[in-house]
């Protein structure tokens, strides 16, 4: 029984992280309908910038956190400006292949700088954040990941619903040409969505790094696990990303706990194929009906 509840707690916390990671992905898809294959590398970039600031530059944690967020924000901006802006108006296949290329570049760069080793952050989270329920112990990282997950979910919910930038983003995703003609600055929308996506990715990278340690290969493979999450939740739904993340996270921990640890990494993709067969637009995604 305890094992079950512990798995449940682990699954929910990991699920929240997947949801957080997926949120940045959905952000880009929502504003430009681009599948970002470099998302895992963005996660890793955030984790490594934070690592360098904390261990090498020895900055206080809070300052390092703020600088990392600012840094990833700028990184997203630069990526958009350098690589994606020349491709506005080109077929989507080029943009997606470009993100595949970017993923290779970032992975190579990070491997060159930090190598393929496993790093861990110094222990800095206050211990009193952990929650003790009977024999079940929820470590502080998980508490923080859940809090941040909920925080960003509401923040983005309001952002897309009420702020003018959020509404611009939705309009661009819906129809680029029409929103251009209505005076939406499409370039700024792209730049902003990439910047915000990179910021969210960086932050989830840090939390993932606290839980699993920081390793280029591990973190970039999380970027690929985002695909089952967003397909399950619906490619264009922020809330769906969280729900999808939760389901995938639970599924993974339960398969790992009860069936076999090696199956754990494949189960999301098996589910993915079934979702594509049964309900391809996901749980909360927009159902597009197109008739000729």
């Amino acid at each position: 029984m305890d094992f079950l509840i512990q798995l449940l707690v682990n699954g929910i916390s990991i699920g929240f992280l997947y949801g957080l990671a997926a949120m940045g992905f959905v952000m880009i898809f929502k504003s430009s309908s681009v599948l970002n294959f470099a998302h895992g590398e963005l996660l890793a970039a955030g984790a490594f910038i934070f690592l360098t600031l904390v261990t090498w530059a020895k900055l206080p944690i809070f300052l390092a956190f703020v600088i990392t967020l600012a840094g990833t924000f700028v990184l997203g901006f630069v990526i958009e400006r350098l690589f994606l802006r020349p491709l506005i108006g080109e077929p989507l296949i080029y943009v997606i292949m470009l993100t595949v290329g970017l993923a290779s570049i970032f992975k190579g760069l990070m491997l060159l700088i930090w190598g393929g080793n496993l790093y861990i952050y110094p222990d800095f989270l206050p211990a009193h954040l952990s929650i003790q329920m009977g024999s079940i112990n929820i470590p502080p990282v998980y508490v923080i990941s859940i809090v941040i997950g909920l925080l960003f979910l509401t923040l983005f919910g309001f952002f897309f619903k009420f702020s003018s930038q959020g509404i611009y983003m939705r309009s661009v995703a819906d129809n680029q040409t029409a929103s251009l003609s209505l005076g939406v600055n499409v370039r700024r929308v792209f730049a902003l969505s990439w910047a915000i996506a990179a910021l969210v990715a960086g932050m989830s990278g840090i939390i993932l790094g606290i839980i699993n340690g920081i390793n280029v290969h591990d973190l970039s493979s999380v970027g690929l696990k985002v695909f089952p999450v967003v397909i399950l939740g619906g490619l264009d739904s922020i809330g769906g990303a969280i729900v999808g993340g939760l389901i995938i996270g639970l599924l993974e921990t339960f398969t790992g706990g009860y069936l076999s640890p090696s199956l754990r990494d494949v189960v999301p993709y098996i589910v993915l194929v079934f979702i594509l067969l049964v309900r391809p637009y996901g749980l909360f995604g927009l159902v597009e009906i197109e008739r000729v």
């Binding site: 690589f83 292949m97 470009l98 595949v100 290329g101 970017l102 993923a103 290779s104 570049i105 970032f106 992975k107 190579g108 760069l109 491997l111 060159l112 393929g116």
Partner: peptide
């Protein structure tokens, strides 16, 4: 490995 990744990525991009 890293150099190959880099070279690959750059040629594609």
């Amino acid at each position: 490995a890293p150099i190959r990744e880099l070279a690959f990525g750059f040629t594609i991009v």
